[in-house]
Design a binder for these strands. Structure first.
Lengths: 356, 356
DNA sequence: TACCGTCATACAATCGTTTGCTCAACAGGG
DNA sequence: CCCTGTTGAGCAAACGATTGTATGACGGTA
């Protein structure tokens, strides 16, 4: 109690009383005032016919005694909790922590509470997380599934129980749900456009995981980008980052002067790509340009600073949260909301200057 | 329902039934089996004397019908929810997302659920978060308060309601609670030791926020480190990162050859410091060495890679979670647990090589 | 047969709110 | 004076589980 706020004798007594009988409940107030619990309840919620006099006395005593409604009782009665569940791959990637921030802001504004769960990319953990949230009777779930997930029956359980689900970033085509994703494909075109327009022709791609839908989309976007500019697609210029020897292969292409630009699946791979390029003695961006994807912090910390495609992570979170709340508050609406948020080219030092 | 798992006619009927009467509850099972709810409850929880025959039939029907206990009812009765609240500055700093991961792992193992809240450094949001969590009747709270927080009465409310609180990283000396912090002071000594032993004498410090306890501790550690090695402390070599002109001042010291090493409050400041040093045309680590604090990802992405003091973020989270659970499960124990976790020097490229 | 212990199960209270229904009091109009 | 409408407040039934206590059946013993 050192350094605590000021005491009064009355507040001290109140505290002692509270310690003895526990948290104050509606019946305590009713008893003290000689009215019934229903009167207290109606006075507090300010609905139903209540005389001004009664209402005031109830409200005042409730305030004085620090009454707080017991959420468990209310949840039980109302069959909903204003709790929503979140299933994400992890927090340590900046992207998902931004997503979380966005979700959190909306939920906070709307008076919802957030349960977080991570699956760390493992299906088994994802199933566990979804089941826990279902057991807890959350009002809805926002999920970004593990890349390996192909069986979605755990979400099906949820949907059967009429718990709305919104998928984020990673979708399941076999399930009818709302979702929000990034506009990956146009983003890739922007990247290739930029590289071509700053004078590059031999553009390589460091590809993401095959299992992930985004991996496929960005590879396709890369191909389409080449096509748009009348450039030939060359299989050997695609480096599968999941393979062990992609760096060696890139290095070989480098030395053979077979590459003058690299478009990478994400910023971390772009960072590694830059290291490979540097170790080959090539200068960036003069001899080789590099474009990443996502605009993670690494992009501004590395040397040279990375040109990349920004994903609106926080906005993704916000939209997903808004969608979910819409579903929760309009349970009869059976329509699904699908949104694809635009990306943006962020020019930094790993590509040549370009006047738009 | 496209791509869903296999149906049977029976499961279909069960689903329809469930849709009509809602989620199956204990009375449904009791009614179907012609027993009382207490029998079902005891059969399911497997305590109390129950004939094997009854137990089996209850368990089987519960499974068949997909019975899941209603947590709201149980919370109401047991007056606890296995929900715990988390109040952190933010998620987007890698440090706190690691902390969150650590907490999450322990809570997951122990069957607790995590409500997250952020205050973004603002007292007003912190108060709101704590009050919301209190209103929700969480079983306990782990908190890392805003740097400006000096009034802790919102935590006091919690403590009066016997809700255990564990402070993390940032403590409140006026409040009797358990806490876990990092061993900052010895960490600073390690940093200075390393700089001195690799031949530096003119060591500067880029200081953190004055309001933050860690800011003060690291400045003190810096001073003590100098003292240990018989070096004079010079006020002008301390740059207050909160001031607008610290970079200019550092630059001036640099040109005046007044500094041959910089110890920074954290890795982000170290990154900025490195940029200043580079812009002065000095080589790192030959002419000037830099040591950061925290071992954030930026340390490995920047050039040169940063030598820094690692804080065991995930371990902090784990310990805080374990402490909190201990308090929750041993409510009569009034002792407080205080722990200071060790830091570690991570040598990279921003300081000279040093053989231990 | 009367009594008692044991076992399986049922009954009913409880947790803290909300809410539909009932009821009493009072006032106004015919 | 009676009927009716309005107003304020109370009663009691939910919500879905747990759990202390009561009860009934059964078997064994004196």
């Amino acid at each position: 109690m050192r350094g605590a706020t000021g005491f009064t004798f009355v507040s001290f007594i109140l505290k002692v009383v509270r310690m003895i009988r526990g948290r104050v409940k509606i019946t305590d107030i009713a008893h003290e005032l000689g009215v019934s619990t229903s009167t207290v309840s109606r006075a507090l919620s300010n609905e139903g016919r209540i005389s001004e006099k009664t209402r005031t006395s109830v409200v005042e005593l409730a305030k004085k005694w620090g009454y707080k409604p017991n959420p468990f009782a209310i949840n039980l009665l109302k069959k909903q909790s204003k709790n929503i569940g979140l299933v994400l791959p992890e927090f340590t990637h900046h992207y998902f922590s931004k997503v979380l921030s966005g979700i959190n802001k909306v939920m906070d504004e709307k008076g919802y509470h957030l349960f977080v769960n991570v699956h760390e990319g493992r299906l088994e953990q994802e199933v566990k997380a979804v089941n826990i949230l279902n057991d807890m009777r959350v009002d809805g779930i926002i999920a970004s599934h593990a890349r390996a997930t192909s069986d979605f029956s755990h979400y099906l359980d949820l949907i059967e129980d009429d718990v709305p689900v919104v998928f984020l970033d990673r979708i399941c085509e076999d399930l009818d749900t709302s979702y929000v994703v990034t506009d990956d494909f146009p983003g890739c075109l922007k990247a290739i456009d930029h590289l071509v327009e700053t004078g590059h022709r031999k553009i390589a791609h460091v590809a993401g995981p095959e299992g992930l839908s985004t991996g496929f989309v960005r590879l396709t976007g890369y191909k389409e980008g080449l096509k748009v500019h009348g450039l030939e697609f060359e299989e050997r210029r695609v480096l599968a980052s999941e393979s062990a020897e992609w760096k060696e292969k890139l290095s070989a292409l480098m030395h053979a002067e077979e590459v003058d630009a690299v478009f990478c699946f994400n910023d971390y791979l772009a960072f590694e790509t830059v290291e490979v390029i540097k170790s080959c003695g090539k200068r960036i961006p003069d001899e080789v340009a590099v474009v990443g994807f996502a605009d993670e912090p690494v992009a501004t910390f590395m040397t040279p600073k990375l040109t990349t495609i920004m994903q609106p992570a926080e906005q993704m979170g916000r939209r997903a949260a808004e969608m979910l709340i819409w579903h929760i508050e309009n349970p009869d609406e059976m329509d699904f909301l699908c949104e694809s948020l635009p990306t943006e080219l962020v020019m930094r030092e790993s590509t040549r200057k370009w006047v738009h």
